[in-house]
Design a protein around this nucleic acid. Sequence first.
DNA 1: AGTATTTCCTTGACGAAGCAAATTAATTCG
DNA 2: CGAATTAATTTGCTTCGTCAAGGAAATACT
Lengths: 159, 159
Amino acid sequence: MQPTPLNGSELAVMRAFGRLMVVMPKMLDADLQRTQRMSLSEYQTLRHLSETPGNVMRMSELAHRCDMSFSGMTRLVSKLESLGHLSRRRCESDGRGFDVQLTEAGFERLREAWPDHLESVRRRIFDHLGRLDLGDLAAALEGMNESGGQACHSAACDK
Amino acid sequence: MQPTPLNGSELAVMRAFGRLMVVMPKMLDADLQRTQRMSLSEYQTLRHLSETPGNVMRMSELAHRCDMSFSGMTRLVSKLESLGHLSRRRCESDGRGFDVQLTEAGFERLREAWPDHLESVRRRIFDHLGRLDLGDLAAALEGMNESGGQACHSAACDK
DNA sequence: AGTATTTCCTTGACGAAGCAAATTAATTCG
DNA sequence: CGAATTAATTTGCTTCGTCAAGGAAATACT
């Protein structure tokens, strides 16, 4: 009672994709760790902050964008705060929340790290796209990301 | 001194890809966990065993194929052994090594799990490929997997 | 106003997986 | 053959990130 079997190419894609999911995050993380002594999640956190107006975001929003649980984000932010890359202060309009603000040092750290990260991404990903159309690929990847049904990790379900 | 900046589509691909690396493994794992009470790495381990002649493999070989460290594989195999999905016995030709053998029960478990996993992969991945050519995609993914420079996690460097 | 509910974040406990060191077996060398 | 070296796993310890529970502020209800 197979739900429609796979043909040759599909099987190849499935295998390669399966492996990629395991290996690619490790490679990108290892590259960043090696060249910049920084983890991929730290990088992503700083990047998201840097891309928001004012470089300030609520914890929840940040966790959401980074696809992490609230608790995971609390821990990561604590670490980045101790490194001086960002600061956390109670939100004025809502005393329950916290505003996370990218510091100048954090911004500097990001500027310092991104060329290496970009090089890593280029070498590990872009250099292998071959004939694939970038627009089609972007659309496909975005579709996958939205395939929702939420893994139920990721922020939404920490509580 | 940017190492060649990204154009629009490239940026979109990079962002989507970055997110996918974080989210997709969680989604596939959560799907399998929900429908089959099994983790993705358990599944992959059983699958690799099932695809080898005789359904036997050395620990190191298995770790290598699953892109896990030796230690991680030792623990995973211990768990699967306690579940009766596989058995481990000293290798005859080399007393240092162990042969891991998929049991009939393990094989059955895999047969039971794969339709759900396939459905999950189909829904999360294949349903979003749009115009992408499967052959080109497979080639690209394989290229990325080989982008080597080993993350240095993954088996090779556990020691 | 006073209590109940909900929201936002933090903390505690835990599991998965990695690295480094330890273990035991095979091999190489003198 | 016995010591030194190399190989295949395992065990100890640490880190990352999740879930479950808790605390404090805001909101809703009476």
